[in-house]
Design a protein around this nucleic acid. Sequence first.
DNA 1: CGGGACATGTAACGCGTTACATGATTCT
DNA 2: AGAATCATGTAACGCGTTACATGTCCCG
Lengths: 183, 183
Amino acid sequence: MKNYNHTTYAILGLLTTDCRSGYAIKQMIDRSLNHFWKISYGQIYPTLKLIVDEGLATVSASSEDSKQGKNEYELTPKGKEVLKTWLEEPIEQIPVERNEILLKLFFGSHQSKETTTDQLEEYKAKLENRYAAYTGIEEMLQNNYGEGEDTKYWLFTLDYGKRTTKAAIEWCTVTLEAISKEE
Amino acid sequence: MKNYNHTTYAILGLLTTDCRSGYAIKQMIDRSLNHFWKISYGQIYPTLKLIVDEGLATVSASSEDSKQGKNEYELTPKGKEVLKTWLEEPIEQIPVERNEILLKLFFGSHQSKETTTDQLEEYKAKLENRYAAYTGIEEMLQNNYGEGEDTKYWLFTLDYGKRTTKAAIEWCTVTLEAISKEE
DNA sequence: CGGGACATGTAACGCGTTACATGATTCT
DNA sequence: AGAATCATGTAACGCGTTACATGTCCCG
């Protein structure tokens, strides 16, 4: 079976949910997968085209409604099979995330101490916002979709985001303390 | 002042340490920055060329030694200034790391439960290896470089890796428990 | 009737990886 | 002599972002 890139599998997976259009996929990712995935329209539309070309989905060019340029996609059996095959494959390697603040901190001896602490404070504030956003999504999921089988898995991924973000926040706290204390 | 990409700043920063050649830079990153940065030769050599073209470093084409194709780079005052300016700039945004296992888990309702747990177990094992590697680097740093001003900052970045990795390992544990218990 | 959300799409560009190509030095 | 490591470099390719272009629908 042919291999596709992760973006393709992500879209294939989202087509199993209520997302039926490129726009809906973008929204879903921005709202519910944003802690571990992101995507741009510049990828979505060409990839949807590829998916149709490969026979993994069909597109109904909104034949019934007034032609408001709204496309609805539906997975074919082949598309479902490709998705399932990928899901069953073992994971490759864990990625190295490039982190700008750690890169700057690595060269911290060339910074003023004030700059270092400012950057850490700002990073911490951003992480706290992120954490709050995750909590918000979590509550939304628990209220709106409490029934579905999917929800359970979506909450698992959120928990990952919360735990790692919390650990990063704690790191900011102790690092700031260490820097200020040493003086 | 002109802007460069993060790869360029990373190399500029490493040129302030003992790393003087492309090969040494690659080794340093693989050994000591691998928890938050990586780079390939395909980037290093063209970037070093750019850095010289821009007057941020000079290259001594190993004039003295037998011409064994070994280049030594040295930052110019301008290069130091560019680096410092970048270090003082506030950080942009925190990146979204794409995570294959979370993507698969998000679609976990389409997997067999066994596949899900296998993937989580494997991910956990890889995280544990990573954690052990960090501990190893930490010990090496504390033994070999205990004196330098840089070491303190390098240990901060390692601590970040350890804390977030540990949080991810704990997440694996509780998620595996939740999945096995629910049945 | 104007603004915001909905909706689709493309082209240019930047970045990074991979594979390839080459050759010197060092160790056994 | 052969292998491993040191060392530099390029070309092709894949992926993703950004900016641009276009148009509809719905609410007030």
